[in-house]
Computed example of a mutant assay.
Amino acid sequence: MEYKLIGMEHCDQVLEHLRRFFFADEPLNKAAGLCQNGSSCTALEDHCVEAIKDRMSLMAVDVKVDGCCKIAGVVLNGILRPGDTAKSRQKLDGSIDADFRKIFELLHGHSLKHNLFEHFDVVRMFDVRILSVDSGYRGQGIANELVKQSLAVAKDNGFRVMKADATGIFSQKIFRSHGFEVFSEEPYDKYTDKNGKVILPVEAPHIKMQQLYKRICGEDEDVKKQPH
């Protein structure tokens, strides 16, 4: 298995992988009925492409399949700066995809309530956004290696803090095994409308989302300038 940075030239392959192995099965997407296995979701794919543009994402590639390269797993990482989440939350108002809005109103709303930038006093964070492995390759440690190599990319690029909004119990376990800690969390049964109805009826064993973080060694450029 080879692990490589994802470039814009890999977008189509990566999106096809996500359509088959992530979009329909991710706990919040599944609860919202966002899309069927193999089908596309324009808003979600745009979200993925935005991460790929930052050139911090990685893919696991099996080079032994039929003499060509097959994507076995991907981790989409982006650069998050103060104000980015607020801008993304505002953009949701213009989205015509009601199911997509339900999901990201939860994610963005939670991040805005629990501000990691202020807590760690940094001007950017390495944001782990999507972790996905081909069903035929699961159980081989690929997700763990993708997170491990993401840590190396974050270090190489001088980040001091990594962040992940983990929506399922399995990704939460993987992140914690790599030293991530829980900064905040939100039970899905507390995310309700004005009538008290649960907005996203997520299936067990996934009962809550967690905002996780990991401190890493970075360069001085990542720290806010202190007044003299």
Results as ranks from 00 to 15, higher is better:
Lys148Cys: 08
Asn157Asp: 01
Lys155Val: 12
Glu105Gln: 10
Leu80Cys: 11
Ala154Tyr: 00
Met162Cys: 15
Lys64Pro: 00
His178Ile: 00
Gly109Trp: 04
Glu26Trp: 03
Val223His: 03
Arg55His: 12
Asn195Lys: 09
Gly7Asp: 09
Gly196Asn: 04
Glu219Trp: 10
Val198Ser: 04
Gln36Met: 13
Tyr213Arg: 01
Gln13Ala: 15
Asp222Leu: 11
Leu131Ala: 02
Ser39Gly: 12
Leu200Ala: 08
Lys53Asn: 04
Ile103Val: 08
Val198Thr: 00
Asp193Asn: 12
Met162Asp: 03
Ser150Lys: 01
Gly83His: 09
Met1Glu: 04
Asp66Leu: 03
Cys69Ser: 14
Ser171Cys: 06
Arg138Gln: 07
Pro201His: 06
Phe21Pro: 13
Cys48Ile: 05
Ala32Met: 11
Glu118Ala: 11
His119Ala: 10
Ser95Val: 10
Val14Glu: 03
Val61Arg: 02
Leu76His: 03
Gly94His: 08
Tyr188Val: 06
Lys148Phe: 04
Arg19Glu: 08
Val65Tyr: 08
Ala51Leu: 15
Ile71Ser: 08
Gln172Ser: 05
Glu181Cys: 14
Ile6His: 03
Met59Glu: 02
Val223Thr: 12
Leu15Pro: 06
Gln140Pro: 00
Gln13Trp: 09
Gly136Val: 01
Glu26Met: 08
His10Arg: 05
Ser88His: 14
Phe117Trp: 04
Lys102Asn: 10
His17Lys: 05
Leu76Ile: 02
Lys70Glu: 14
Ser184Gly: 07
Ala60Leu: 00
Ser95Ile: 07
Met162Thr: 08
Ser39His: 15
Val198His: 04
Asp12Cys: 12
His108Arg: 08
Cys35Ile: 13
Asp12Ser: 15
